[in-house]
Computed example of a mutant assay.
Amino acid sequence: MLKCYDCLEDNKDSEAVGVCIVCGKGLCMEHIKQVEFPMKGGYPLPHVTLKKELPRMMCRECIDATLGEDMCV
């Protein structure tokens, strides 16, 4: 079974419920965060904004690195 990477760094043993879409590390419910991105479809043009945002799972480190600390998640 996949273990939570962040918990293992703290000498805890927790099962992962998902993986970060950026770095790929396994995360438990305590460490995984859902981030909704507005998605655009169409290649190369025209770009169409999808009617519903798609949820993505990320770790706190990748949220801070890609979206910045100003994001509310």
Rank of each mutant, 00 (worst) to 15 (best):
G41H: 11
E53S: 12
Y43T: 14
I63W: 07
L54R: 13
G18M: 02
E36Q: 07
M57R: 08
S14E: 15
G42I: 06
G24E: 08
I63H: 06
D10K: 15
L2W: 09
C20A: 07
E61V: 00
P46I: 15
D13W: 05
L54W: 08
V19G: 07
R60L: 10
C28R: 00
D64V: 08
D6G: 04
K40L: 15
K25C: 05
L8A: 12
C62L: 12
A16M: 03
M57K: 13
Y5N: 07
M39G: 05
M39S: 14
E30C: 01
I63R: 08
E15M: 07
T66P: 06
G42H: 11
M71P: 00
D70P: 00
M1Q: 14
P44C: 07
E69I: 02
K25H: 08
C4I: 02
E9P: 03
V35M: 05
A65M: 07
N11G: 11
R56D: 04
M57F: 10
T49E: 10
C23M: 13
V35D: 00
Y5R: 03
C4R: 01
S14K: 09
G42V: 08
F37I: 15
Y43H: 10
V19E: 09
D70G: 12
I63V: 14
L45N: 08
V73P: 00
M57V: 05
